[in-house]
Simulated assay, not measured.
Amino acid sequence: MSTYFTIGEVSKLFNLPIKTLRYYDEKGVLKPAYINPSTNYRYYSREQFISIDIIKYCKLIGMSLEEIKELINSDSSIEIMINNMNKQSELLKRKIKELTDVKTYLDDIKNSVEEILEYEINKVIIRRNKERKNIRFDLEYDKVEELELYLRKVILYLEERYNDVYPLLGVIAPYNNVKNRGEIKYSCVCDFTDRGIKNKESNNLNGVEIITPGGNYITIFFDDNWENINKYYYKIMDYIEENNIEVEGDFNEVWTMPRVDSNGKEKTFGYIEILIKNNDK
């Protein structure tokens, strides 16, 4: 058996787990050159070393086992190798773009959270915002469950289009509804990420690109469960009335970092804002 190597020896020579070599055998990617009929021990020949190198290389560039199996079992011509390299190069290019987009998204979220942390939670302030390009999804609902389901559809729509795991989402609450101190009833779900509709193509959710004006916004930051959100709206209304401030438009409720507490209850880090009228934009 001096011309053969045990599965353990091959594992050490190529830094491959034994279970991986067995899996390659099971999938027909790399069959042992010899199996002892008495012990069922697997043995590999020196000639198979190049096949193992090719398999490792192909895995490195992202080829699937089926593609590797097809390559190993073919004549492995130069043309086939080049075609596979081109194919994997294009796949890697797309993956790099996807990862770059994800990193940009994570950096934006991190920057938003760090900016919020500069302010005092649960305190009304005036903050200046730049003009933003957002997407509004008009909303009609009677029950909270209907709002949750619609929100999930919006998240999936944005995820498919922008590769966002969780975009900078929120809702718009009509000013008059809040002013009358009634139950907060939202009119829209909004993607507050500053980007607008990609390619302006139509969509089944009827998303509309809107311009959120720049200017001074009365703002309150919160870190709480959505069931307690009314008190933050009313705190802003108290501030508006006590200081005789004119505002325009509706309230934006922006969710920067939704999460779950130790009791499994939803908790959101975010803010509520409304534009001050006639300010210097």
Rank of each mutant, 00 (worst) to 15 (best):
R152K: 14
E148D: 14
V154D: 07
E160T: 09
Y150V: 06
V144I: 09
D142S: 11
N111Q: 13
K179D: 10
E114L: 13
R128A: 06
D108P: 01
I172K: 05
M85K: 08
I172H: 03
S89W: 09
V124L: 00
L139D: 04
K130C: 07
L156C: 07
L92V: 10
S89M: 12
L149Y: 11
E131K: 12
I78H: 03
R181E: 10
L106R: 05
N129I: 02
Y166C: 04
G170N: 02
E159Y: 11
V154N: 01
D107V: 09
K95Q: 14
V165A: 12
K87M: 14
E120Y: 00
N129W: 04
K153C: 14
E148I: 15
N163F: 11
P167Y: 05
K95G: 01
N180L: 14
L158W: 01
I82H: 05
V178T: 05
N111A: 11
L139W: 11
K133C: 10
R152Y: 12
R127A: 06
N86T: 10
L151H: 11
L147R: 02
Y105K: 08
L168E: 00
E115R: 11
E160N: 15
K87W: 00
E148P: 01
R136W: 09
D101H: 09
E114P: 01
K179W: 10
V124S: 04
V165R: 08
K133A: 00
E114M: 13
V178D: 01
Y150H: 03
L169M: 05
R132G: 03
S89R: 11
Y105G: 01
R136M: 12
K87V: 00
S89N: 11
V124F: 04
V171C: 07
N176D: 15
D138C: 05
L169G: 01
E148W: 10
Y119I: 00
D142P: 02
N134V: 15
L91G: 08
R127V: 13
I126F: 03
K123F: 06
N129L: 15
D164Y: 07
Y157P: 01
I135F: 04
V165L: 15
N177A: 00
L92K: 05
I80R: 12
Q88M: 13
T104A: 13
E145D: 05
N163P: 02
R132Q: 09
K93M: 12
L99P: 03
K87G: 03
N86D: 14
E79W: 03
K87A: 04
K153W: 06
V102W: 07
K95D: 15
L169W: 01
K130E: 14
L149R: 06
V113W: 02
Y157D: 14
Y150T: 10
L106W: 04
N163M: 12
L168T: 03
E115G: 08
D108Y: 04
R132Y: 04
N86H: 13
E131F: 03
I135P: 04
V102E: 15
M81R: 08
Y157F: 15
P174D: 07
R152C: 11
E115T: 12
